[in-house]
């Protein structure tokens, strides 16, 4: 293993430990006790919170902003794919098989989506005023991670750059807003629980 792979491993370990601390805190604090629970099953509402409620058919923030929504979905898919590839790369040689080109093309596309979201954040005043340096930094790191992954698949010599970018990303991941990757699931759970207990979700046919 080269030094840059060790660096990535250390950052990944740091990221996992801090994320686990966040996770344990969430589990320790647990779900709200609701004395007003009317006795309905909340399971379907929580399931709906993760599925139907997020679809562009139901979610206004999605259907009013379809290009951003689509770019966001691709960007997130690119992130997940890049993480899987990183896990493989850490413990085996860089993949250069027949799949590497289509995967690289997809990651270039998802990285471009990341750039488009970044550009939108820069040029739209409402978003610019809402943003912190963390918002830009996080976007840039994830976009670079995807592009570096793509590059490493078609150009193994880019490996050191790829691992260094990955290392920086995972050091920042649990510190900045990227930790929403963990809290997102808790937020959707809580929202499903809230609307489920009150009988709002899942929507009933009229």
């Amino acid at each position: 293993m080269a030094w840059y792979q060790y660096l990535t491993l250390i950052s990944l370990l740091f990221c996992c430990i801090v994320c686990l601390m966040h996770l344990f805190r969430l589990i320790r604090l647990g779900s709200p006790v609701d004395y007003a629970t009317p006795g309905v099953k909340t399971g379907p509402a929580i399931a709906y919170s993760f599925t139907g409620a997020m679809s562009p058919v139901k979610k206004e923030s999605a259907y009013l902003h379809l290009p951003t929504y689509t770019a966001g979905i691709l960007f997130h898919l690119g992130s997940f794919l890049s993480m899987i590839i990183l896990a493989v790369h850490l413990f085996s040689p860089i993949i250069t098989g027949f799949l590497s080109w289509p995967v690289a093309v997809f990651l270039f596309a998802s990285g471009t989506c990341g750039i488009s979201i970044l550009v939108k954040r820069i040029i739209k005043s409402s978003l610019r005023n809402l943003s912190s340096p963390d918002d830009y930094l996080s976007n840039i790191l994830v976009t670079l991670f995807q592009l570096a992954t793509a590059l490493s698949l078609i150009l193994p010599a880019a490996g050191p750059v790829y691992f260094v970018v990955s290392a920086i990303l995972f050091f920042w991941f649990p510190v900045g807003k990227l930790r929403h990757a963990l809290y997102f699931f808790a937020a959707r759970y809580h929202l499903g629980l809230f609307y489920g207990r009150r009988g709002v979700w899942p929507p009933k046919p009229r």
Binding site: L29, P32, V33, S61, T68, S126, K177, H180, F184, A187
Partner: peptide, 23 residues
């Protein structure tokens, strides 16, 4: 002294996408 995980979940989740504006 948080009674449960509801508040810290909300406070750590926003990504500032701004898509809530029109709601």
């Amino acid at each position: 002294d948080l009674p449960d995980s509801r508040l810290i979940t909300q406070l750590n989740s926003c990504v500032h996408c701004g898509l809530c504006a029109e709601t």
